[in-house]
Design a binder for these strands. Structure first.
Lengths: 408, 408
DNA sequence: GACTTAAGTCAAGTCAATTGACTTAATAAG
DNA sequence: CTTATTAAGTCAATTGACTTGACTTAAGTC
């Protein structure tokens, strides 16, 4: 061969790609609008009635949609709306956090069916892999006990853990997170479960959750500011999660706050639960910390209010920055902070700084509160395989790497 | 009707979408890899030989590709590579700058064939629209004189001008830019020329140019820092220009530099040619300013070096920030600064701040110099219709709004 | 009670990718 | 020098999935 480098090109597509896309478009339309008739779907997707009819028949056979009561809405034959069947598909989500791992099972519409939690050992993945595999298979078994066809309808396993990925750390890895980041987790879990495995960072998972069932539902452009032990941004751009070249898109925790600052203060250093724990001089590894800060926020503990004031100033600027850079429809504050804290933090961020988002004729608020639930990252992890299997996306149309070009 | 809101759904697709995508994929492969044989194309795109053969035949009939000399590369029948025909398509790009407007004609491979320039009147679009229409039609006529089939092969008119769009300004509109931004330019130009018209901001246009023929050629993720009269970022994400919800994505000039700063200093205030003009106390509207600062940079004028030092500090942080947020493959410094200035500015930005981009095994530099040419924005404007017509993209597969769903 | 409107089906048609056999033309082996 | 092997590319038939247009069903409306 004369050509030493591989040829760079996108994949082509064929009838299967067309069909897969149209199926996904219809599923998404039902997710976004609720039950719709074949005629409505045809108009909305610009497909012909006949095509929609065929796809709906197929989806019904596959158990993904069911007809509802017919609706008489004027002249003409009454229409039969079809709705998504929640039990049409399932996914498992796994969160690996600093001292705990959580797994959830969700259905096609994003309802959390099962939760499970376990402590992670202090030696990281060495023994921790066993723990997470057991957690996942426990959830899987309970899911199958709930719905006997769940095994066949399980579309994948999503994993979420703190990023960044592929970077040499700062030697301060008290939680063994770096060891987890370097561990071949996707391969190990895929081999151990036989499922397709996807990996996201915490913030991306939160954004994925907000996109499936939360404040970003149906939005094309949204930024989720995830405030957890660290801080990150989950980016929904063109209706898809944006991950960057190496899966580290949105890892804004490491962003330094100022061009001049000789101390090189990062955003994470000032606005994250880690910074709150430090400010309060409490051990983040102690049990009940999460509930404790929730209660103290509720009680408006002055030291918490201090931190809120300072974190809010930095986050206000963070909102300004992501609005300026991304021009999103909305910014969502979400993630792992207890709700009383998140709510007060959000209130303290008002008034927001002026920005490009401050435009006439807005319908969505510039900043809104998303999920504040310790389980939202695991939910987002589970939402990823659902989206991968059912959301319309460019990559779903293209011929996959596995499919060889034949023809001679 | 019972349903007051329109139904939200993506468009479906059909055979035409498939076919259009495959054509685009093949054109892109030829653009990225140079001439390729049908067999190579089939392997790279995962299409069958037969399909590729049909598409190549069609593209050859359409005058978009030509066969090259056959190549004997070992056993088997020699292959016939096909190459893009530069004259297969043309586009016109129009830049509207503060006191000048520029138009270029480019061909399918992004070669600039013609340039034209005119001063803009001080009253903005009121009389300026006439000027830009004349400029465009002048270029169009010269293009048709060069290539008689150019009229039929003209795929569109791209326009670039400073953003942001749709925002109420800061009452300091000495250049009438706000008047231009509010003017229905796209509609007026479409009506006046009969061409499809697209609009981008300066930074986006520069990124579009870098993507077609520059440092971002073939990259999936790149951020172009555009330093012109203002400053902005052109974002290439997933191989496409990202524009945000309102076309203002990347408008980082208005980003405030610090959470605390009571003076609310914006990046544009510190790192842009406007700030340089102010620093040098020269009138940016005077003729020959551009060449003048180029010469002074070349001569290492101490006042220029002052500015370079301070702007470099801010830009260094800007690079850190976009790396942290986007995780791109590379950052490209490009745009409207004279090359001697841009080159020194880039040198002064080293060493870059540590960031997530500082990873082992990089092949591309973290920061590289892109086009520094006063015509690069106009080139990017022209590159936009070329990309719209020929690049593989999700939206090109979907049924267009014009196409009504029929079928009964 | 006849007409209009809209949902949805039927069956044939069309488009574009696929398949598998075949042709062409080179190098390698004996 | 002949034969085998390999690879590019074509031919003709097939397949899959959307489209078309006529038709059926079931409400309103006049």
């Amino acid at each position: 061969m004369n050509r030493p480098q591989p040829i760079r090109a996108k994949s082509g597509t064929n009838h299967e790609g067309t069909s897969a896309h149209n199926r996904r478009v219809i599923i998404e339309a039902l997710r976004l609008n609720g039950a719709l008739s074949r005629a409505d779907l045809a108009r909305a997707t610009r497909l012909t009635k006949q095509t929609v009819s065929n796809i709906i028949d197929e989806l019904e056979r596959d158990g993904l949609v069911v007809p509802q009561e017919t609706v008489k809405k004027g002249r003409g034959q009454p229409s039969t709306p079809y709705a998504l069947v929640p039990g049409g598909a399932f996914a498992i989500g796994l969160q690996i956090d600093r001292h705990v791992t959580r797994a959830v099972a969700v259905d096609l519409v994003g309802t959390v069916l099962l939760r499970a939690e376990a402590d992670l050992p202090a030696d990281g993945p060495a023994t921790g892999v066993r723990v997470v595999l057991d957690l996942v298979s426990g959830v899987r078994e309970r899911l199958i006990a709930m719905a006997s066809d769940a095994e066949a309808r399980l579309v994948g396993l999503g994993v979420a853990m703190p990023g960044p990925f592929g970077i040499d750390g700062d030697d301060n890895d008290q939680w063994m997170m770096e060891a987890w980041q370097k561990f071949p987790l996707v391969e190990t879990l895929a081999a151990g479960t036989g499922l397709e495995v996807g990996l996201q960072n915490d913030a991306a998972a939160c954004a994925t959750a907000e996109r499936l069932v939360g404040a970003a539902h149906g939005l094309e452009h949204a930024v989720c500011l995830y405030l957890g032990y660290g801080i990150g941004a989950g980016l929904i751009l063109n209706s898809e999660l944006y991950s960057g070249a190496n899966g580290n898109g949105g890892e804004i925790g490491m962003a330094l706050l100022s061009p001049q600052d000789p101390k090189r203060t990062s955003l994470e250093h000032r606005a994250s639960l880690a910074s709150l724990y430090q400010h309060l001089e409490i051990d983040p590894a102690a049990h009940g910390v999460y509930d404790d800060i929730g209660r103290r926020a509720e009680a408006e503990d002055p030291r918490i209010l201090d931190w809120i004031g300072s974190a809010a100033a930095d986050l206000r600027w963070g909102v300004h920055l992501v609005e300026t850079i991304f021009d999103p429809q909305t910014v969502i504050l979400c993630g792992g902070a207890p709700e009383p804290l998140a709510r007060r933090l959000m209130a303290a961020m008002e008034p927001l700084m002026p920005s490009i988002a401050d435009r006439p004729g807005r319908t969505l608020p510039r900043l809104q509160l998303g999920m504040t639930d310790p389980w939202s990252v695991a939910l987002g992890a589970a939402a990823e395989p659902i989206g991968r299997a059912f959301d319309p996306r460019f990559s779903a149309i293209l011929k996959a790497a596995g499919e060889e070009a034949a023809g001679g």
